[in-house]
Design a protein around this nucleic acid. Structure first.
Length: 441
RNA sequence: UCCGGCGUAGCUCAGUUGGCAGAGCGGCUGGCUGUUAACCAGCAUGUCCUAGGUUCGAGUCCUAGCGCCGGAGCCA
């Protein structure tokens, strides 16, 4: 292997591994991100998906053809560059490439739409397929990748089995108004809005199970926290109560935060995320607050909220502002929660449920709780909510055959990524966002 | 579904009381041996969202529509 300049055959590598090749003659395959010229010098900013490196072509050191070609390259030209890796203090990367040869594989047909200057979000989203190449989306999606890896790692280490939930479902979990309908060979099917009910079946089969997949909500929400298609991880645990559920939830989030802080320093720096506030979320346990106490605090702080109503966005922000770490709010009134929540034996008005509120005003990232495991009570609740019993027969079977206390939760991947990256809007945390107004590209 | 805001060059925007359509960036041409969103000089660029209306005259005022953005509710 060549470890010095002058070798006839370049080492094929990527920008991300360039530090291992200092002094070597290498080949990089990528695209022109930006260029600056200075008479007898061309500075090519080249990206290859793993990073950006400056390639310097000096008139005296390359052929006339190569130097002329460098001067004519347009943004996003596909290029192969061969040259010598050298350390340089002026480079943010620490290294630059002294160009020997440049090969143009394809030039853009017309001017690349996304110039390295300011653009509005609407324009960038219209060109999302190209915008992914830019530094900022690249950084956000790296964090997303790390969050999902951390989830899967936490689940595997905790003895959970991945059991994928179906995406096409026969009926609603909680009514059909917010579901996307689709034709299923003459019948109506719906796109899933939660894998939870299926995970309850999986928990009875595997003890600990989880799913991680897309979820669809046809809610006409137009806020920075909503997507119509988003990803959720939903663990479900047999022989688990609310206390155990909260411990799993906070441990998982702490694991995610710890891993992202360890491995995503570059992306977070690109995003100018102040990571100091995230340190408090690195270790469980997180603070807990009952709904009853939350209402008292909110009233003391001047909110007009009354016992019995759900917490609004402002209420959540107000509450979590008192804590550095995420906050677990538990035991909401049963009336504002789903039919499958188990009632608190100490106060039947309450549900054994929990929401996790991210700090810094990022709001709810987890919702979950202990499930109703008694057949008769569950049948009663299905009737109370006016749900079609036939559709839930399989779900009721789980209570007919070896029912046990069990609990679980759902965590929205995009909301977690939004919080960790310190973004204003969830739509940047998914590669191709679907919102009320957007299904292109 | 409700409330508010915006729509002018490829992009980001300015455009006064209604009076010739503008800037910066990007692009193109030229200059520069160390640039970091480089710099300097020059050139080109328009369905002023659409359809009506008021007016001698509308980017500007009025009406309707379309598109987008944000918030509420609802949620992860």
């Amino acid at each position: 292997m060549s470890d010095g300049g002058g070798g006839a055959t370049p080492i094929l590598t990527r920008v991300g591994e360039i530090a291992a090749h200092e002094g070597a003659y290498v080949e990089l395959r990528g695209w022109l991100y930006n260029m600056r010229s200075s008479g007898k010098l061309h500075f090519l900013q080249m990206r290859d998906g793993s990073g950006v490196i400056q390639c310097v072509a000096f008139k005296g050191e390359v052929s006339e053809e190569t130097f002329a070609l460098c001067g004519e390259l347009a943004q996003e030209s596909a290029i192969v560059v061969r040259g010598d890796v050298r350390a340089d203090e002026r480079s943010p990367l620490g290294f630059e490439l002294g160009v020997r040869e440049v090969e143009l594989l394809s030039a853009p047909e017309t001017e690349y739409p996304i110039s390295p200057k300011e653009h509005g979000v609407a324009f960038l989203m219209e060109h999302r397929h190209l915008w992914l190449r830019s530094t900022r989306p690249h950084a956000v999606l790296q964090v997303r990748n790390e969050v999902i890896s951390a989830c899967r790692e936490f689940m595997a280490d905790g003895g959970f089995t991945l059991v994928d939930a179906p995406i096409l479902t026969p009926a609603a979990c909680e009514g059909t108004t917010t579901l996307f309908e689709t034709d299923y060979f003459g019948d109506t099917a719906y796109l899933t809005q939660s894998g939870q009910l299926y995970m309850e079946a999986a928990a009875m089969a595997f003890g600990k199970a989880y799913c991680l997949g897309p979820t669809f909500r046809a809610e006409k929400s137009k806020t920075r926290r909503h997507l119509t298609e988003f990803w959720m991880i939903e663990p479900e645990i047999a022989y688990c109560d609310l206390a155990g559920d909260m411990e799993v939830a906070e441990s998982m989030v702490a694991h995610i935060v710890d891993r992202v802080l360890d491995r995503c320093t570059d992306p977070l720096r690109v995003l100018e995320r102040d990571t100091a506030p995230l340190e408090a979320a690195r270790k469980a346990p997180f603070p807990r607050l009952s709904y009853d106490d939350a209402i008292e605090i909110l009233k003391d702080e001047g909110s007009s909220i009354e016992w019995g109503s759900d917490l609004g966005g402002e209420d959540e922000t107000l509450l979590s502002a008192n804590y550095d770490a995420p906050l677990l709010v538990h035991r909401y009134p049963a009336q504002v929660k789903a039919f499958y929540m188990k009632a608190d034996p100490d106060d039947e008005r309450l549900a054994l449920c929990v929401d996790m509120l991210a700090p810094e005003g990022y709001g709810e990232i987890i919702g979950g709780g202990q499930r109703e495991d008694d057949l008769t009570i569950l049948e009663g609740k299905i009737a109370e909510h006016g749900l079609p019993k036939e559709a839930f027969e399989w779900y009721l079977d789980l209570r007919r055959y070896g029912t046990v206390p069990h609990a679980g939760f759902g965590m929205g991947i995009e909301r977690v990524v939004t919080w960790l990256c310190g973004l204003k809007h969830v739509r940047e945390t998914i590669p191709f966002p679907r919102t009320l107004q957007r299904i292109y590209p």
